Measured scan of single mutants.
Amino acid sequence: MSIQHFRVALIPFFAAFCLPVFAHPETLVKVKDAEDQLGARVGYIELDLNSGKILESFRPEERFPMMSTFKVLLCGAVLSRVDAGQEQLGRRIHYSQNDLVKYSPVTEKHLTDGMTVRELCSAAITMSDNTAANLLLTTIGGPKELTAFLHNMGDHVTRLDRWEPELNEAIPNDERDTTMPAAMATTLRKLLTGELLTLASRQQLIDWMEADKVAGPLLRSALPAGWFIADKSGASERGSRGIIAALGPDGKPSRIVVIYTTGSQATMDERNRQIAEIGASLIKHW
């Protein structure tokens, strides 16, 4: 058993032996400061991975655009179909130039040979490839079927209504393609630790998130040596930015963190910096 498999397999085991986890309101002070700095709403939640207890939250039940963070949920739905014998990670999917949409750094290189379902999930999560996400959405029946999958998990909040890139429109008060921090954190925890997916599929999902290559300026920039993080970021119109993550010290995840912001006029660099500073406060007061 690899170190990674050891880590995921023991998450339920550690729940019975973990020390009490204490919240630190200092992080919420930073979240509120980020709102002031960005001139935008910020949603935040910090969840204990083992118990599911909410440690801190700010606007946990307000809607925010999901942006590309939905791609983790999408690959969770794909893995659920794999577990049920309805899909194979090794199945190759062929597509054409007409299928390519904006920001497809991986799929645009494989027009001649296509990509496997496994490769598409990797591209969608680690590189946020939009065509990969659309191709995967097609395999499960489209955005409405992803919403149905989430409903069956008990998440009646999170919804996907459109495809890439239209889902990134982020119109104020538009509930399409949105979630709430509390709903996203709970759903992510179920995917990573619950019985919905097999152990192998849970491991695969967290491996893809751990290999994320496009979230460096966010929480990863504040991470001390030896800490673990598996994450997925997102960005969209109207100053929207977000990240969902499982992270913790000693090389294993122990908390879920979800951060969303929307409605800012700030630059992408400034949005990144504010999220990184929230992460730094979280780690300092861990």
Rank of each mutant, 00 (worst) to 15 (best):
I3H: 15
H5R: 12
A9C: 15
A9R: 08
A9S: 13
I11H: 04
P12T: 14
C18V: 14
L19A: 15
F22I: 08
H24S: 11
H24I: 05
D36V: 15
L38S: 06
G43W: 00
I45V: 15
N50A: 15
K53G: 08
I54R: 07
L55T: 04
E56D: 08
P60T: 07
E61G: 14
E61D: 14
E61R: 14
E62R: 04
R63L: 07
P65G: 05
P65S: 05
P65A: 07
F70G: 03
F70A: 07
V72T: 05
L73H: 03
L73C: 06
A77S: 08
A77R: 09
L79C: 02
S80Q: 14
R81D: 03
V82R: 05
V82Q: 04
V82G: 03
V82I: 11
V82Y: 06
D83I: 01
A84P: 01
A84V: 12
A84T: 12
Q88K: 14
L89D: 03
L89K: 02
L89Q: 03
G90I: 09
I93L: 12
H94N: 13
H94Y: 14
S96V: 13
S96H: 11
Q97K: 15
Q97R: 15
N98I: 14
Y103L: 05
P105A: 04
T112M: 15
G114S: 03
R118N: 14
E119D: 10
S122W: 13
A124G: 04
T126G: 10
A132S: 07
N134V: 01
N134A: 01
I140T: 04
K144F: 10
K144E: 15
K144V: 12
K144D: 14
E145K: 13
T147D: 06
M153H: 09
G154D: 08
V157G: 07
R159G: 01
L160F: 08
D161S: 05
R162S: 12
W163E: 07
E164V: 01
P165Q: 04
P165S: 05
E166V: 08
E166K: 08
N168F: 03
N168G: 09
N168D: 07
N168Q: 06
E169G: 08
E169K: 07
A170E: 15
A170V: 13
A170Y: 15
P172C: 11
P172L: 10
N173R: 09
N173V: 08
D174C: 06
D174K: 03
E175S: 10
T178P: 00
T179A: 00
M180A: 14
M180G: 09
M180C: 15
P181F: 00
A183R: 06
A183P: 05
A185T: 02
T186S: 15
L188Y: 05
G194V: 06
T198Y: 06
R202W: 01
I206A: 09
I206R: 10
W208C: 01
A211M: 11
D212S: 05
V214S: 08
V214I: 09
A215D: 02
P217T: 09
L218H: 02
L219T: 01
S221H: 10
L223F: 13
P224D: 02
I229M: 05
D231C: 03
G234R: 00
R238V: 11
G239C: 04
R241G: 07
I243Q: 01
A246R: 00
L247T: 02
L247A: 01
L247Q: 00
D250T: 07
G251D: 08
G251C: 07
K252T: 12
P253Y: 06
S254A: 13
S254V: 10
S254N: 08
I256L: 07
Y260I: 05
T262H: 12
G263E: 11
Q265T: 14
M268F: 08
M268E: 07
E270A: 10
R271W: 04
R271S: 10
N272T: 06
I275V: 08
S281A: 15
I283F: 12
I283N: 00
I283L: 06
K284S: 12
K284I: 07
K284Q: 14
W286E: 00
